[in-house]
Design a binder for these strands. Structure first.
Lengths: 196, 196
DNA sequence: TGCCGGGTGGCACTCGGTGTCACTAACGTC
DNA sequence: GACGTTAGTGACACCGAGTGCCACCCGGCA
Protein backbone atom coordinates (compact mmCIF):
# COMPACT_ATOMS: atom_id res chain seq x y z
CA UNK A 1 0.00 0.00 0.00
CA UNK A 2 3.03 2.22 0.22
CA UNK A 3 3.70 1.76 -3.47
CA UNK A 4 0.24 3.01 -4.31
CA UNK A 5 0.58 6.20 -2.31
CA UNK A 6 3.95 6.80 -3.90
CA UNK A 7 2.87 6.42 -7.51
CA UNK A 8 -0.28 8.41 -6.81
CA UNK A 9 1.87 11.25 -5.54
CA UNK A 10 4.11 10.96 -8.60
CA UNK A 11 1.09 11.14 -10.88
CA UNK A 12 -0.35 14.22 -9.18
CA UNK A 13 3.01 15.92 -9.12
CA UNK A 14 3.70 15.24 -12.79
CA UNK A 15 0.21 16.31 -13.80
CA UNK A 16 0.34 19.52 -11.78
CA UNK A 17 3.67 20.46 -13.25
CA UNK A 18 2.76 19.70 -16.85
CA UNK A 19 -0.62 21.41 -16.56
CA UNK A 20 0.79 24.63 -15.17
CA UNK A 21 3.57 24.70 -17.72
CA UNK A 22 1.71 23.79 -20.89
CA UNK A 23 -1.96 24.20 -20.06
CA UNK A 24 -4.53 21.60 -19.12
CA UNK A 25 -5.91 20.86 -22.57
CA UNK A 26 -2.52 20.64 -24.23
CA UNK A 27 -1.20 17.92 -21.95
CA UNK A 28 -1.94 14.34 -22.92
CA UNK A 29 -2.55 11.46 -20.54
CA UNK A 30 0.35 9.64 -22.18
CA UNK A 31 2.64 12.54 -21.36
CA UNK A 32 1.60 12.49 -17.72
CA UNK A 33 2.01 8.74 -17.60
CA UNK A 34 5.45 8.98 -19.17
CA UNK A 35 6.49 11.69 -16.73
CA UNK A 36 5.24 9.60 -13.83
CA UNK A 37 6.98 6.49 -15.15
CA UNK A 38 3.82 4.42 -15.56
CA UNK A 39 1.59 3.28 -18.37
CA UNK A 40 -1.47 5.03 -19.62
CA UNK A 41 -3.68 2.24 -18.30
CA UNK A 42 -2.20 2.50 -14.83
CA UNK A 43 -2.88 6.25 -14.78
CA UNK A 44 -6.60 5.56 -14.93
CA UNK A 45 -6.28 3.02 -12.13
CA UNK A 46 -5.19 5.81 -9.80
CA UNK A 47 -7.12 8.76 -11.19
CA UNK A 48 -10.66 8.55 -12.49
CA UNK A 49 -10.42 11.41 -14.96
CA UNK A 50 -7.81 13.81 -16.22
CA UNK A 51 -9.33 16.57 -14.11
CA UNK A 52 -9.16 14.47 -10.96
CA UNK A 53 -5.39 14.57 -11.12
CA UNK A 54 -5.59 18.17 -9.90
CA UNK A 55 -7.98 17.57 -7.02
CA UNK A 56 -6.21 15.37 -4.49
CA UNK A 57 -8.59 13.42 -2.30
CA UNK A 58 -11.29 16.06 -2.17
CA UNK A 59 -13.63 13.52 -0.67
CA UNK A 60 -11.81 13.56 2.63
CA UNK A 61 -11.99 17.36 2.58
CA UNK A 62 -15.75 17.21 2.31
CA UNK A 63 -15.91 14.58 5.01
CA UNK A 64 -13.89 16.83 7.29
CA UNK A 65 -16.19 19.74 6.55
CA UNK A 66 -19.16 17.55 7.40
CA UNK A 67 -17.64 16.51 10.72
CA UNK A 68 -16.86 20.11 11.62
CA UNK A 69 -20.39 21.22 10.85
CA UNK A 70 -21.84 18.37 12.88
CA UNK A 71 -20.21 19.49 16.11
CA UNK A 72 -20.95 23.23 15.91
CA UNK A 73 -22.59 24.76 18.93
CA UNK A 74 -26.22 25.72 18.63
CA UNK A 75 -25.71 29.21 20.03
CA UNK A 76 -23.37 30.09 17.16
CA UNK A 77 -25.03 31.79 14.19
CA UNK A 78 -25.41 29.40 11.27
CA UNK A 79 -23.40 31.48 8.83
CA UNK A 80 -20.62 31.88 11.37
CA UNK A 81 -20.46 28.14 11.88
CA UNK A 82 -20.18 27.55 8.15
CA UNK A 83 -17.51 30.22 7.82
CA UNK A 84 -15.51 28.72 10.67
CA UNK A 85 -15.73 25.29 9.12
CA UNK A 86 -14.54 26.60 5.76
CA UNK A 87 -11.66 28.41 7.42
CA UNK A 88 -10.64 25.35 9.36
CA UNK A 89 -10.78 23.01 6.40
CA UNK A 90 -8.66 25.41 4.39
CA UNK A 91 -6.09 26.03 7.09
CA UNK A 92 -3.02 24.88 5.18
CA UNK A 93 0.50 24.83 6.51
CA UNK A 94 2.70 27.58 5.12
CA UNK A 95 4.77 25.07 3.20
CA UNK A 96 1.73 23.76 1.36
CA UNK A 97 0.60 27.16 0.13
CA UNK A 98 2.63 27.15 -3.10
CA UNK A 99 1.06 23.88 -4.22
CA UNK A 100 -2.35 25.17 -3.18
CA UNK A 101 -1.80 28.26 -5.30
CA UNK A 102 -0.81 26.09 -8.25
CA UNK A 103 -3.88 23.92 -7.85
CA UNK A 104 -6.25 26.84 -7.42
CA UNK A 105 -4.80 28.70 -10.38
CA UNK A 106 -5.59 25.67 -12.51
CA UNK A 107 -9.03 25.00 -11.08
CA UNK A 108 -10.13 28.62 -11.27
CA UNK A 109 -8.37 29.40 -14.54
CA UNK A 110 -8.76 26.43 -16.87
CA UNK A 111 -12.31 26.22 -18.25
CA UNK A 112 -12.31 22.44 -18.31
CA UNK A 113 -11.37 22.34 -14.63
CA UNK A 114 -13.85 25.08 -13.76
CA UNK A 115 -16.52 22.88 -15.28
CA UNK A 116 -15.36 19.83 -13.40
CA UNK A 117 -15.35 21.75 -10.12
CA UNK A 118 -19.10 22.08 -10.26
CA UNK A 119 -19.46 18.34 -9.78
CA UNK A 120 -17.03 18.41 -6.90
CA UNK A 121 -18.77 21.32 -5.21
CA UNK A 122 -22.11 19.55 -5.39
CA UNK A 123 -20.97 17.39 -2.47
CA UNK A 124 -20.02 20.45 -0.47
CA UNK A 125 -23.39 22.03 -1.14
CA UNK A 126 -25.19 18.90 -0.01
CA UNK A 127 -23.28 18.80 3.26
CA UNK A 128 -23.85 22.47 4.02
CA UNK A 129 -27.51 22.32 3.02
CA UNK A 130 -28.06 19.42 5.42
CA UNK A 131 -26.37 21.40 8.17
CA UNK A 132 -28.62 24.40 7.59
CA UNK A 133 -31.65 22.16 7.37
CA UNK A 134 -30.80 20.59 10.73
CA UNK A 135 -30.38 24.01 12.27
CA UNK A 136 -33.56 25.54 10.90
CA UNK A 137 -35.81 22.53 11.01
CA UNK A 138 -36.43 22.56 7.29
CA UNK A 139 -35.80 19.93 4.66
CA UNK A 140 -32.45 20.09 2.82
CA UNK A 141 -34.33 20.69 -0.40
CA UNK A 142 -36.06 23.86 0.80
CA UNK A 143 -35.10 27.26 -0.52
CA UNK A 144 -33.16 28.51 2.49
CA UNK A 145 -30.81 25.54 3.01
CA UNK A 146 -30.05 25.33 -0.67
CA UNK A 147 -29.55 29.05 -0.96
CA UNK A 148 -27.25 29.24 2.04
CA UNK A 149 -25.23 26.32 0.72
CA UNK A 150 -24.77 27.72 -2.76
CA UNK A 151 -24.14 31.31 -1.71
CA UNK A 152 -21.68 30.40 1.02
CA UNK A 153 -19.81 28.31 -1.48
CA UNK A 154 -19.91 31.26 -3.84
CA UNK A 155 -18.42 33.34 -1.03
CA UNK A 156 -15.70 30.79 -0.44
CA UNK A 157 -14.87 30.52 -4.13
CA UNK A 158 -14.71 34.28 -4.44
CA UNK A 159 -12.45 34.49 -1.43
CA UNK A 160 -10.16 31.94 -3.07
CA UNK A 161 -10.09 33.95 -6.28
CA UNK A 162 -9.25 37.16 -4.46
CA UNK A 163 -6.62 35.43 -2.35
CA UNK A 164 -5.05 33.94 -5.44
CA UNK A 165 -5.07 37.19 -7.39
CA UNK A 166 -3.94 39.44 -4.57
CA UNK A 167 -1.09 37.50 -3.05
CA UNK A 168 -0.70 39.60 0.08
CA UNK A 169 -3.80 38.61 2.06
CA UNK A 170 -4.54 35.59 4.19
CA UNK A 171 -6.99 32.99 3.00
CA UNK A 172 -8.73 33.10 6.36
CA UNK A 173 -9.07 36.89 6.16
CA UNK A 174 -10.52 36.76 2.68
CA UNK A 175 -12.97 34.08 3.75
CA UNK A 176 -14.08 36.14 6.72
CA UNK A 177 -14.41 39.25 4.59
CA UNK A 178 -16.61 37.46 2.09
CA UNK A 179 -18.78 35.83 4.74
CA UNK A 180 -19.19 39.15 6.54
CA UNK A 181 -20.49 40.77 3.38
CA UNK A 182 -22.88 37.89 2.91
CA UNK A 183 -24.13 37.79 6.48
CA UNK A 184 -24.88 41.49 6.56
CA UNK A 185 -26.60 41.65 3.19
CA UNK A 186 -23.71 43.35 1.42
CA UNK A 187 -23.27 46.49 3.48
CA UNK A 188 -20.50 47.35 1.03
CA UNK A 189 -23.16 48.10 -1.54
CA UNK A 190 -24.45 50.94 0.57
CA UNK A 191 -21.01 52.50 0.93
CA UNK A 192 -20.40 55.12 -1.76
CA UNK A 193 -17.03 54.88 -3.52
CA UNK A 194 -15.43 57.82 -1.76
CA UNK A 195 -16.57 59.19 1.57
CA UNK A 196 -14.68 59.60 4.84
CA UNK B 1 -30.36 31.35 -43.69
CA UNK B 2 -33.84 29.97 -43.13
CA UNK B 3 -32.56 26.46 -43.66
CA UNK B 4 -30.00 26.93 -40.94
CA UNK B 5 -32.52 28.07 -38.36
CA UNK B 6 -34.74 25.16 -39.25
CA UNK B 7 -32.13 22.42 -38.93
CA UNK B 8 -30.80 24.02 -35.77
CA UNK B 9 -34.28 23.82 -34.27
CA UNK B 10 -34.57 20.20 -35.39
CA UNK B 11 -31.26 19.37 -33.75
CA UNK B 12 -32.16 20.97 -30.44
CA UNK B 13 -35.56 19.38 -30.44
CA UNK B 14 -34.23 15.92 -31.19
CA UNK B 15 -31.47 16.28 -28.61
CA UNK B 16 -33.82 17.51 -25.91
CA UNK B 17 -36.22 14.67 -26.50
CA UNK B 18 -33.58 11.94 -26.59
CA UNK B 19 -31.74 13.33 -23.55
CA UNK B 20 -34.85 13.47 -21.39
CA UNK B 21 -35.95 10.03 -22.45
CA UNK B 22 -32.69 8.09 -22.29
CA UNK B 23 -30.32 10.30 -20.31
CA UNK B 24 -27.59 12.60 -21.53
CA UNK B 25 -24.68 10.20 -21.39
CA UNK B 26 -26.52 7.34 -23.04
CA UNK B 27 -27.43 9.29 -26.16
CA UNK B 28 -24.90 9.30 -28.98
CA UNK B 29 -24.27 12.15 -31.37
CA UNK B 30 -25.07 9.76 -34.21
CA UNK B 31 -28.46 9.10 -32.70
CA UNK B 32 -29.23 12.81 -32.44
CA UNK B 33 -28.01 13.35 -35.99
CA UNK B 34 -30.16 10.49 -37.24
CA UNK B 35 -33.20 11.81 -35.40
CA UNK B 36 -32.60 15.27 -36.84
CA UNK B 37 -32.09 13.87 -40.33
CA UNK B 38 -28.53 15.12 -40.73
CA UNK B 39 -25.06 13.67 -40.61
CA UNK B 40 -22.83 13.52 -37.60
CA UNK B 41 -20.47 16.01 -39.19
CA UNK B 42 -23.23 18.52 -39.78
CA UNK B 43 -24.31 18.27 -36.15
CA UNK B 44 -21.01 19.75 -35.09
CA UNK B 45 -21.41 22.55 -37.61
CA UNK B 46 -24.47 23.75 -35.74
CA UNK B 47 -23.58 22.84 -32.19
CA UNK B 48 -20.13 23.15 -30.71
CA UNK B 49 -20.44 20.38 -28.14
CA UNK B 50 -22.98 17.80 -27.13
CA UNK B 51 -23.88 19.89 -24.09
CA UNK B 52 -24.52 22.96 -26.18
CA UNK B 53 -27.48 21.26 -27.81
CA UNK B 54 -29.38 21.85 -24.56
CA UNK B 55 -28.52 25.54 -24.17
CA UNK B 56 -30.12 27.43 -27.04
CA UNK B 57 -28.36 30.67 -27.79
CA UNK B 58 -27.43 31.48 -24.24
CA UNK B 59 -25.18 34.21 -25.53
CA UNK B 60 -28.13 36.39 -26.48
CA UNK B 61 -29.56 35.81 -23.01
CA UNK B 62 -26.41 37.16 -21.45
CA UNK B 63 -26.39 40.09 -23.86
CA UNK B 64 -29.96 40.91 -22.85
CA UNK B 65 -29.02 40.75 -19.19
CA UNK B 66 -26.15 43.09 -19.86
CA UNK B 67 -28.39 45.60 -21.62
CA UNK B 68 -30.93 45.49 -18.81
CA UNK B 69 -28.26 46.10 -16.21
CA UNK B 70 -26.82 48.98 -18.19
CA UNK B 71 -30.03 51.00 -18.07
CA UNK B 72 -30.94 50.53 -14.41
CA UNK B 73 -31.63 53.68 -12.44
CA UNK B 74 -29.03 54.78 -9.97
CA UNK B 75 -31.53 55.25 -7.14
CA UNK B 76 -32.46 51.57 -7.27
CA UNK B 77 -30.55 49.33 -4.87
CA UNK B 78 -27.94 47.28 -6.67
CA UNK B 79 -29.30 43.91 -5.61
CA UNK B 80 -32.80 44.95 -6.62
CA UNK B 81 -31.57 45.94 -10.05
CA UNK B 82 -29.89 42.59 -10.52
CA UNK B 83 -32.97 40.75 -9.32
CA UNK B 84 -35.20 42.70 -11.69
CA UNK B 85 -32.87 41.96 -14.59
CA UNK B 86 -32.86 38.24 -13.78
CA UNK B 87 -36.64 38.21 -13.54
CA UNK B 88 -37.03 40.04 -16.82
CA UNK B 89 -34.61 37.82 -18.70
CA UNK B 90 -36.39 34.74 -17.43
CA UNK B 91 -39.90 35.98 -18.15
CA UNK B 92 -40.99 33.20 -20.45
CA UNK B 93 -44.35 32.90 -22.15
CA UNK B 94 -46.61 30.30 -20.59
CA UNK B 95 -46.32 28.13 -23.68
CA UNK B 96 -42.56 27.97 -23.38
CA UNK B 97 -42.55 26.80 -19.79
CA UNK B 98 -42.71 23.05 -20.56
CA UNK B 99 -39.59 23.26 -22.71
CA UNK B 100 -37.91 25.39 -20.08
CA UNK B 101 -38.70 22.76 -17.48
CA UNK B 102 -37.25 20.06 -19.70
CA UNK B 103 -34.09 22.06 -20.28
CA UNK B 104 -33.64 22.95 -16.64
CA UNK B 105 -34.25 19.41 -15.50
CA UNK B 106 -31.41 18.31 -17.73
CA UNK B 107 -29.05 21.15 -16.87
CA UNK B 108 -29.62 20.85 -13.12
CA UNK B 109 -29.88 17.07 -13.08
CA UNK B 110 -27.29 15.63 -15.42
CA UNK B 111 -23.78 15.89 -13.95
CA UNK B 112 -22.15 16.44 -17.32
CA UNK B 113 -24.48 19.35 -18.01
CA UNK B 114 -24.06 20.74 -14.51
CA UNK B 115 -20.36 20.84 -15.20
CA UNK B 116 -20.82 22.53 -18.52
CA UNK B 117 -23.10 25.14 -16.98
CA UNK B 118 -20.20 26.54 -14.99
CA UNK B 119 -18.56 27.72 -18.19
CA UNK B 120 -21.78 29.29 -19.37
CA UNK B 121 -22.40 31.04 -16.06
CA UNK B 122 -18.94 32.58 -16.12
CA UNK B 123 -20.23 35.05 -18.71
CA UNK B 124 -23.18 35.95 -16.50
CA UNK B 125 -20.88 36.51 -13.55
CA UNK B 126 -18.65 38.77 -15.59
CA UNK B 127 -21.56 40.92 -16.70
CA UNK B 128 -23.01 41.24 -13.21
CA UNK B 129 -19.61 41.93 -11.66
CA UNK B 130 -19.03 44.75 -14.11
CA UNK B 131 -22.41 46.20 -13.23
CA UNK B 132 -21.65 46.13 -9.52
CA UNK B 133 -18.21 47.57 -10.17
CA UNK B 134 -19.73 50.46 -12.10
CA UNK B 135 -22.18 51.13 -9.32
CA UNK B 136 -19.71 50.97 -6.46
CA UNK B 137 -16.71 52.51 -8.15
CA UNK B 138 -14.58 49.43 -7.65
CA UNK B 139 -12.79 47.23 -10.15
CA UNK B 140 -14.68 44.18 -11.42
CA UNK B 141 -12.01 41.99 -9.88
CA UNK B 142 -12.51 43.26 -6.34
CA UNK B 143 -14.11 41.13 -3.67
CA UNK B 144 -17.51 42.80 -3.58
CA UNK B 145 -18.35 42.79 -7.30
CA UNK B 146 -17.21 39.19 -7.66
CA UNK B 147 -19.05 38.12 -4.55
CA UNK B 148 -22.28 39.81 -5.55
CA UNK B 149 -22.05 38.27 -8.99
CA UNK B 150 -21.46 34.72 -7.78
CA UNK B 151 -23.94 34.82 -4.92
CA UNK B 152 -26.72 36.38 -6.97
CA UNK B 153 -26.19 33.70 -9.55
CA UNK B 154 -26.31 31.16 -6.75
CA UNK B 155 -29.61 32.71 -5.71
CA UNK B 156 -30.95 32.52 -9.23
CA UNK B 157 -29.84 28.91 -9.67
CA UNK B 158 -31.41 27.94 -6.36
CA UNK B 159 -34.62 29.67 -7.34
CA UNK B 160 -34.62 27.66 -10.55
CA UNK B 161 -34.11 24.44 -8.64
CA UNK B 162 -36.92 25.18 -6.24
CA UNK B 163 -39.22 26.25 -9.06
CA UNK B 164 -38.47 23.06 -10.94
CA UNK B 165 -38.92 20.80 -7.94
CA UNK B 166 -42.03 22.49 -6.56
CA UNK B 167 -44.14 22.96 -9.65
CA UNK B 168 -46.73 25.26 -8.10
CA UNK B 169 -44.75 28.48 -7.69
CA UNK B 170 -43.84 31.19 -10.14
CA UNK B 171 -40.29 31.58 -11.33
CA UNK B 172 -40.47 35.30 -10.59
CA UNK B 173 -41.69 34.64 -7.06
CA UNK B 174 -38.94 32.16 -6.36
CA UNK B 175 -36.35 34.57 -7.70
CA UNK B 176 -37.68 37.38 -5.51
CA UNK B 177 -37.77 35.10 -2.48
CA UNK B 178 -34.16 34.06 -2.98
CA UNK B 179 -32.95 37.61 -3.58
CA UNK B 180 -34.83 38.84 -0.53
CA UNK B 181 -33.06 36.31 1.65
CA UNK B 182 -29.76 37.36 0.17
CA UNK B 183 -30.32 41.11 0.48
CA UNK B 184 -31.33 40.88 4.11
CA UNK B 185 -28.52 38.57 5.18
CA UNK B 186 -30.74 35.49 5.48
CA UNK B 187 -33.33 36.64 7.99
CA UNK B 188 -34.78 33.16 7.64
CA UNK B 189 -31.85 31.83 9.63
CA UNK B 190 -32.98 33.82 12.63
CA UNK B 191 -36.51 32.42 12.46
CA UNK B 192 -36.85 29.35 14.67
CA UNK B 193 -38.60 26.35 13.08
CA UNK B 194 -41.86 26.60 14.99
CA UNK B 195 -43.05 29.68 16.83
CA UNK B 196 -46.22 31.75 16.42
C1' DT C 1 -21.69 27.26 -70.30
C1' DG C 2 -18.50 28.03 -66.57
C1' DC C 3 -17.65 29.93 -62.06
C1' DC C 4 -18.64 30.60 -57.20
C1' DG C 5 -20.12 30.05 -52.52
C1' DG C 6 -22.99 27.96 -48.92
C1' DG C 7 -24.41 23.77 -47.06
C1' DT C 8 -23.45 19.00 -46.69
C1' DG C 9 -21.53 14.12 -46.07
C1' DG C 10 -17.70 10.93 -45.75
C1' DC C 11 -13.36 9.78 -43.94
C1' DA C 12 -9.49 9.65 -41.15
C1' DC C 13 -7.46 11.14 -37.08
C1' DT C 14 -6.64 12.55 -32.01
C1' DC C 15 -7.69 11.95 -27.40
C1' DG C 16 -10.23 10.66 -23.08
C1' DG C 17 -11.95 6.71 -20.96
C1' DT C 18 -13.13 1.48 -20.39
C1' DG C 19 -12.95 -3.64 -20.59
C1' DT C 20 -10.19 -7.62 -21.04
C1' DC C 21 -6.32 -10.51 -20.78
C1' DA C 22 -1.74 -11.91 -19.72
C1' DC C 23 2.32 -11.25 -16.98
C1' DT C 24 5.09 -10.65 -12.78
C1' DA C 25 6.26 -10.50 -8.00
C1' DA C 26 5.21 -11.24 -3.64
C1' DC C 27 3.12 -14.40 0.04
C1' DG C 28 1.41 -18.25 2.45
C1' DT C 29 0.30 -23.37 2.50
C1' DC C 30 0.93 -28.22 1.84
C1' DG D 1 10.25 -26.84 -3.52
C1' DA D 2 5.73 -26.88 -6.00
C1' DC D 3 1.45 -24.71 -5.65
C1' DG D 4 -2.52 -21.27 -5.62
C1' DT D 5 -3.62 -16.48 -4.45
C1' DT D 6 -3.48 -11.71 -4.79
C1' DA D 7 -2.05 -6.95 -5.98
C1' DG D 8 -0.13 -4.27 -9.37
C1' DT D 9 0.97 -3.59 -13.95
C1' DG D 10 1.18 -3.22 -19.19
C1' DA D 11 -0.62 -4.20 -23.81
C1' DC D 12 -4.39 -4.28 -26.78
C1' DA D 13 -8.88 -3.40 -28.60
C1' DC D 14 -12.74 -0.74 -28.36
C1' DC D 15 -16.14 3.32 -27.89
C1' DG D 16 -17.53 8.11 -28.22
C1' DA D 17 -16.60 13.20 -28.57
C1' DG D 18 -14.56 16.43 -31.41
C1' DT D 19 -11.66 18.19 -35.57
C1' DG D 20 -9.54 18.73 -40.21
C1' DC D 21 -9.85 17.82 -44.84
C1' DC D 22 -11.79 16.92 -49.16
C1' DA D 23 -15.37 15.96 -52.44
C1' DC D 24 -19.95 16.81 -53.64
C1' DC D 25 -24.36 19.15 -54.71
C1' DC D 26 -26.99 23.08 -55.86
C1' DG D 27 -28.61 27.70 -56.53
C1' DG D 28 -27.17 32.21 -58.30
C1' DC D 29 -24.72 34.83 -61.75
C1' DA D 30 -21.96 36.53 -65.64
Amino acid sequence: MDVRADTRARIEQAALELFTRTGFEQVTIDEIADAAGISRRTFFRYVATKADAVWGDFGSHVARLERLLAVTRVDQPVLASICAAYVEVNDYAAGDLPILRQRLALILGEPALQAHSQVRYADVDRVVAEHVARRTGQTPGALLPRLVATSTRAAATTAFEVWLADGTTTLADDLHAAFDQLALGFPGLRTPPSRP
